[in-house]
Amino acid sequence: MLINKFTTIKGQRVILVPYRKEHVPKYHNWMQSKELQLLTASEPLTLDQEYEMQVSWQQDCDKCTFIILHRETYESTGNEIDSMIGDTNLFFPNSEDRSCAEAEIMIAERWARRKKCGWDATLLMLLYGVLYLDVKEYQVKIAFGNIPSINMFQNIGFSELSRSEVFKEVTFSKMIDDDWIKWLSDNVGNFEIQNKEFET
């Protein structure tokens, strides 16, 4: 999405940066994993298709995507590629009305799981959507077997909306109100949003 093309969000454990072409090879390598394909309901793409997808995501009005960096790794190395651990995004079914967004999170690097990195990245993205994109409702679709994600979104305050036996996934939703925004802000803690132009 063009609105976040130059946006960097720094949280406690992670840094969210726009998905750029230099990230594509590592992202492509991640998505060859059968486990990640299953958890994200994704089909493998060729590297050329992945580059095309990156450009599309950057320009589309209906998708806001960030690559997740492990903050400690990045601050010690200064290398974004080595620090990449996953991605998070918002998808807007109706690009003319961004009041409802579907949230997605993936921690691809096994070593970064169960360290609150996914939690931090998700809360940052949800808060960004509320503050800067005027989102009023969130939904998430999670595979039946993805128990860690189901538990995480329930702990964030999402409630089950429906189940699909065909797609083997459950949909959760969260209507946004002032109390939840305060809860998000309290749990995110100190964060910083920067706008910096990158070479594309």
Rank of each mutant, 00 (worst) to 15 (best):
M1T: 04
L2F: 11
L2A: 14
L2D: 10
I3T: 10
K5P: 04
Q12A: 15
Q12H: 14
Q12F: 11
R13H: 11
V14K: 00
I15A: 02
Y19A: 05
H28L: 12
M31C: 07
M31G: 01
Q32Y: 01
K34E: 13
Q37K: 10
L39E: 05
L39M: 11
L47Q: 07
L47R: 07
D48K: 13
Q49M: 07
Q49G: 07
E50V: 09
Y51V: 06
Q54K: 08
S56T: 15
W57Y: 14
Q58S: 12
C61A: 15
F66A: 01
I67V: 14
H70W: 06
H70T: 03
R71Q: 10
R71A: 08
R71W: 02
E72F: 11
Y74P: 05
Y74F: 15
S76T: 14
S76V: 14
T77Y: 03
G78N: 07
N79H: 04
I81T: 11
D82V: 13
S83A: 13
M84G: 02
T88C: 12
T88Q: 03
N89F: 04
F91A: 04
F91Y: 10
P93V: 08
E96R: 09
D97W: 08
S99H: 11
C100F: 09
E102Y: 06
E102S: 13
E102Q: 12
I105Y: 03
M106Q: 06
I107Y: 00
A108P: 00
E109S: 03
A112L: 03
R113C: 01
R114M: 12
K115N: 13
K115L: 15
K115R: 15
K116S: 15
W119L: 13
D120E: 09
A121M: 05
T122G: 06
L123Y: 00
L126V: 02
L126Q: 04
L127K: 06
G129F: 07
L131F: 07
Y132S: 12
Y132A: 07
D134N: 14
D134W: 01
Q139H: 07
V140G: 01
K141G: 08
F144Y: 14
F144I: 05
G145C: 06
N146L: 08
I150E: 03
N151M: 13
I156Y: 00
G157L: 04
G157Y: 02
E160I: 14
R163E: 12
S164T: 10
E165R: 06
F167L: 12
V170I: 15
V170Q: 02
V170C: 09
T171K: 12
T171W: 05
F172A: 05
K174R: 10
D178N: 11
D178A: 13
W180N: 01
W180H: 07
D186C: 14
D186A: 14
G189W: 09
F191E: 06
F191S: 09
E192Y: 12
I193W: 05
E197R: 13
F198I: 10
F198Y: 13
